[in-house]
Design a protein around this nucleic acid. Structure first.
Lengths: 196, 196
DNA sequence: GTCTATAAATGGATAGAC
DNA sequence: GTCTATCCATTTATAGAC
């Protein structure tokens, strides 16, 4: 809306807007198709630019992926911010987000679909440990917080995999409420005090 | 060792032996590199034949994959065959097989690394439900056996993912014994009687 | 700042000789 | 039964015009 608009005749656009559009498109494409199958052409098209812009703004596909991962993992998802009722919150949130008809733009999906690429795993690991991992560990507390947090994430990731990605009949057709109960009972031992 | 040996001069070999070699190589390659990154050329080289043979014996890469999945999932792995001590057995087996220095030719790895390819997920789902899924459900028993079994597999898959594939520091460096204890406490609710 | 055109490599699958 | 040679599609990344 500024005077910039007419600085150059045709396809002139803001640099940060383009960068942002590419990044948003990248998160979506990587989440939906994984690292290998997400093409720079498709990402660019989704962002309304040409494939070339990706290298201009992010250096390479891998560079773009690194920023996309950070963007995807930064917001607080499955793991909330409240210590109270952590188990129930996680279980319910997990059951609802992995349900057959749900949204599907989740960091867990991005992680699962990109785990097969060596170039992506290092980046993903840093993203997990820096964001959702340390956040969950902080909520759990205690000296075993890190391991317990990672096991909680493991259950979440596995549930995403089998229910939302693979789509096994038993999990896809399961009732969300009952599933949340079962998930909560599995999370209980690692979220509450020690279980020696 | 038969008279077949000298029927043709040079590269004459048994058809079933070649087929078997390709299949074994395919399981290894798909497990190590995933569906997308496993090339027919590499699989062929590993089997000691040319890439062309794969199409001859299995029609296509996807056809080969289907048989490789069946081959990988058929043997009884993490889930044993004994009902007694199921929880402890699973937990210990899982902790040991996902340890940093371990073998790494597991159906769970194959599943994880191929889950990003749509052409592979249907095949993988059938493999799970037909083999390890129904086997575990049979051991658990009860009317909720299927869902409970899938949740057990979810925890196993997630542990494989975070510990062996992604390699988060907390899980990679965790003590196997303590990890087995924690895993057992998470598996307990779904392997034993109801948890309503 | 964005485009078109192309480079350079790699993928799966096929034809035809031996 | 196995090979060599090739086709055709697709990929990321780059060069240079506007």
């Amino acid at each position: 809306m500024s005077a910039e608009e007419s600085a150059t005749p045709a396809h002139r656009r803001d640099a940060v807007a383009t960068r942002e559009a590419i990044l948003a498109a990248a998160v979506a494409e990587f989440t939906e198709n994984g690292y290998a199958r997400a093409g720079v052409r498709q990402i660019a098209e989704r962002a309304g630019v040409t494939a070339m812009m990706i290298n201009r703004y992010f250096g390479s596909k891998q560079g773009l992926f690194a920023e996309a991962v950070d963007r995807s993992f930064a917001p607080a998802t499955v793991v909330g911010t409240e210590r109270r009722g952590l188990t129930q919150t996680m279980a319910r949130s997990l059951a609802e987000s992995t349900a057959p008809g749900a949204e599907r733009l989740d960091p867990f999906l991005l992680m699962l679909r990109c785990a097969s690429d060596p170039a992506a795993v290092d980046i993903v690991r840093r993203g997990i440990e820096a964001h959702v991992g340390s956040r969950l560990a902080g909520l759990i507390g205690g000296d075993e917080a890190d391991v317990r947090a990672q096991l909680g994430l493991a259950l979440a990731a596995g549930t995403w995999l089998l229910r939302a990605v693979i789509g096994t009949e038993a999990l896809a057709g399961a009732d969300d409420d009952r599933l949340a109960e079962l998930l909560a009972s599995m999370l209980e031992p690692i979220t509450s005090g020690d279980s020696r």
